[in-house]
């Protein structure tokens, strides 16, 4: 499956398995940069690692310091390889720009739920598309 006409937020290409959540993420408060895992028991990705994934989320919430938390994830080698948002926010955009992680928004009308868990995916931000489900 190819999802075209995405909105490019941060350029580049990143590949990994999809890690999908419909819940926003507070990168400062609920992600452990040392392990790359979500630490909030109330989050549906609790104990899941962002490392090497194509992280699919609606947007980030909380402190703008979350941008540095994303950069910390990269420094510790635990960052996602790419990020897909329904509507990227300033924290995700700036953090991923700092960390050189490609980011796209899904096109209007394409819900997050159209992407299933643990599928191979490649975000080609400059081409404004996501390639999903290849082997």
């Amino acid at each position: 499956m190819i999802i075209s006409n995405c909105r490019k937020i941060v350029g580049g290409t990143g590949e990994g398995q999809t890690l999908v959540t419909i819940q926003p993420i507070n990168f400062l408060a609920t992600v452990d940069a040392n392990t790359g895992t979500i630490t909030d028991p109330l989050h549906e990705l609790y104990c899941k690692s962002l490392k090497g994934s194509v992280l699919v989320l609606p947007y980030a919430i909380g402190s703008s310091v979350g941008a540095y938390a994303i950069y910390s994830l990269k420094e510790y080698g635990n960052a996602p390889h790419a990020v897909v948002c329904s509507k990227a926010d300033i924290t995700t955009a700036s953090g991923c720009a700092l960390a050189n992680i490609p980011v796209v928004d899904l096109p209007n009308g394409i819900p997050l739920s159209s992407l299933k868990q643990e599928l191979n995916a490649r975000v080609e931000a400059d081409a404004r598309r996501i390639v999903v489900g290849f082997s």
Binding site: P24, N26, A29, Y59, A60, I61, G62, S63, S64, D89, T91
Partner: peptide, 9 residues
């Protein structure tokens, strides 16, 4: 409120 949302104002 901005901690639980994505709105700064």
């Amino acid at each position: 409120m901005s901690t639980s949302g994505t709105c700064g104002m």
